[in-house]
Amino acid sequence: MTAVTAGELGGLKPARRGSIQKSRRQALFWSYVFLVIFAIFFLTPPIYMLVTSLKSSGEISAVTNPWWVYQPTLENYVELLTQNQFLVFFRNSVVVSVTVVAITMLISVPAAFALSRMKFWGSATLATGVFLTYLIPETLLFIPLFKIFAFLRDVTGIEFINHWWILIILYPTLSVPFCTWIMIGYFASIPKELDEAALIDGAGYIQMLTKIFIPVALPGIIAATIFAFTVSWANFLYPLAFTTSADQLVLPVGIVTTLIKGDVYNWGQIMAGSLLCAAPPLIVYAFLMDYYIAGLTAGATKG
């Protein structure tokens, strides 16, 4: 143990080193024990979803061990992927997410560059304002937005509500403020000497952005892209409030509202669909974990 008091400090050195080593080993042991416990807690739901998705509906309702698959089958996946409806959800989700990512980057990268490098009147206030908007939750905005789009329909005659593309208008409100904020942080960390060198070589601001800032801050851009993608892929409130017809839904809402029909829960299929929906963010995370985590921590640590 580390209960080495000041009095003992003058004592034998080997003994002290031994006790520190022993306490290290003990700390390591307990760390692993608790990590295993928490890993079980954190991974139980996804694993159980996987187990269920591999069961036939007969096996799900049978009185057997729910945590084990006796006759694994892929019928739930096959059924979903051959079913037109699920593919429509998937397509809607992909189109919405990809477009939102593109819009987000087109808006937030130039804005972050201007706010971090081209000081102009009110730029500092605006940067703070961007951060504050990020703090306004979607749950505060969905009711007025719903009313605004209903009003716009009356004025313009265009039906906004119940079309999947309305999400392309709505999702940037979630992704742009945060992406701008972390890009400001990344751009601010680029040394000023680089700007000077570029200016001396006669580069304009646009060239400076595309030839220096974007390549140098690429890790930040990747992190922001991942964030924009996961946010628009996972959002549940906006599609639930703004889209209702089955062919206009995106994945999470589609699974919740159409696969659960009244009281009949086809759990195997629901779980298979859920995992297919969780797969893209998980794959992105598996391959780009460092960028993903950098983006998460940048929000509060940089800036």
Binding site: L35, T44, T230, W233, F236, V253, I255, M289, I293
Partner: peptide, 25 residues
């Protein structure tokens, strides 16, 4: 370990909540 422990945050909340709903069924 970090990679494993982050999984709940990566899965869309709506999706993992369906999983929990089924665990609580």
């Amino acid at each position: 370990w970090r990679g494993m422990l982050m999984v709940p945050w990566v899965i869309p909340t709506a999706i993992s909540t369906i999983g929990w709903f089924w665990l609580f069924d």
